[in-house]
């Protein structure tokens, strides 16, 4: 049995098609990433898997249960850490945990012990009796992660788990998650648009405009690029691009006033390049490919090119009829 299985999933909002037929499967114990810019359909896909939204067509199973028909079984199988906080600010950290434990029917004896263990793990035990509204963003996120693990989920969904957190907190949260995966054999499905956050994944599905454009390990994705990334600044970008094409059959792309291409053994290619085209070159940058480069080469646009995501679009639509927010 797969931890997650998705077949030909689609989701429409009116005329807007947010998810256009996604299929994938996630093994037990795997860390699986959904990578893509805002509005690519990641969050919608996760919402469908979590029973928060209904698919327009297609099917999905989580922990063996069909999400459309056995909602409660699915809900009991999953832990969720949302993109935006979903805590009750007026309750204390402990009360938020208790509320969750009750909702998921965690038996009384285990409950207290488990809450204590998790709160200690995320270093919030000392603050357990403080209202959540006094917490910083990082503390809230840590509390949410602790809460998401409270009922021993089989699959943990992390929607942009470390969005807006400082690097130190991000690293610590990842340490917790990895530790738990080893201890409990947890499956993790995460969405992100931070490339470095997707690095620990076993496999990554790159999603753009509602479709999976590639599905591979991070290494495999990088290998597809074929070598190292070279970024050139020259006096005559057009001319150099033509020369690269003619002499080395390299397709260079012009972006933000510089030329960019990938080549095998870049460090050996650069001296050769200097000999042949040395004149007009102002700067050369050589590096190993990152997932950013992968994304760019797969979709033709940068992952950080902001497009409003579908939900935000809908929200904005409603807001226009209201007036200024609060």
């Amino acid at each position: 049995m797969k931890a997650v299985e998705v077949k030909e999933l689609t989701k429409r909002y009116g005329t807007l098609e947010a998810v256009k037929g996604i299929s994938l499967s996630v093994e037990k114990g795997e860390i699986f990433g959904l990578l893509g810019p805002n509005g690519a359909g990641k969050t919608t896909t996760i919402n469908i898997l979590c029973t928060l939204q209904k698919a327009t067509s297609g099917e999905a199973w989580v922990n063996g249960f069909p999400v459309a028909r056995q909602r409660d079984e699915v809900r009991r199988s999953i832990g969720l850490v949302f993109q935006d906080p979903s805590l009750d600010d007026y309750l204390t950290a402990y009360e938020n945990m208790s509320f969750h434990a009750w909702c998921y029917g965690v038996p009384g004896g285990v409950r207290r012990e488990r809450i204590r263990m998790l709160l200690e793990m995320v270093q919030l035990w000392e603050r357990r009796n403080d209202q959540v509204k006094t917490f910083s963003g990082g503390m809230k996120r840590r509390l949410e992660i602790a809460r998401g693990l409270l009922h021993y989920p089989a699959v943990l969904f992390l929607d942009e788990p470390t969005l807006g957190l400082d690097p130190q907190t991000r690293r610590r949260i990842w340490e917790y998650i990895m530790e738990l995966r080893e201890q409990e054999g947890l499956t993790i499905v995460m969405t992100t648009h931070y490339m470095d956050e997707a690095e620990p994944c076993h496999r990554i599905a790159v999603i753009d405009e509602g479709r999976i454009v590639a599905l591979d390990s991070p290494e495999g994705l990088k290998r597809r690029l074929g070598g190292d990334v070279v970024i050139l600044e020259t006096d005559d970008n057009q001319g150099v691009a033509l020369e690269l094409e003619r002499r080395y059959s390299l397709a260079a792309e012009l972006r933000d006033g510089s030329l960019r291409f990938t080549v095998d053994r870049g460090s050996q290619f650069i001296p050769e390049l200097m000999r042949s085209l040395g004149q007009g070159i102002r700067s050369i940058n050589l590096r190993r490919p990152t997932l950013d480069d992968v994304f760019l080469s797969l979709t033709g646009h940068d992952i950080r090119d902001e497009k409003p995501d579908s939900r935000a679009e809908i929200r904005a639509h409603f807001r226009q009829r209201g007036g200024p927010r609060r």
Binding site: E73, R75, F82, D84, S86, L87, D88, D89, H100, C103
Partner: peptide, 13 residues
């Protein structure tokens, strides 16, 4: 608005 409803809606209740 503050997200808590999702915690409730996704719970097996």
């Amino acid at each position: 608005e503050f997200g808590f409803l999702r915690e409730v809606l996704v719970a097996p209740i």
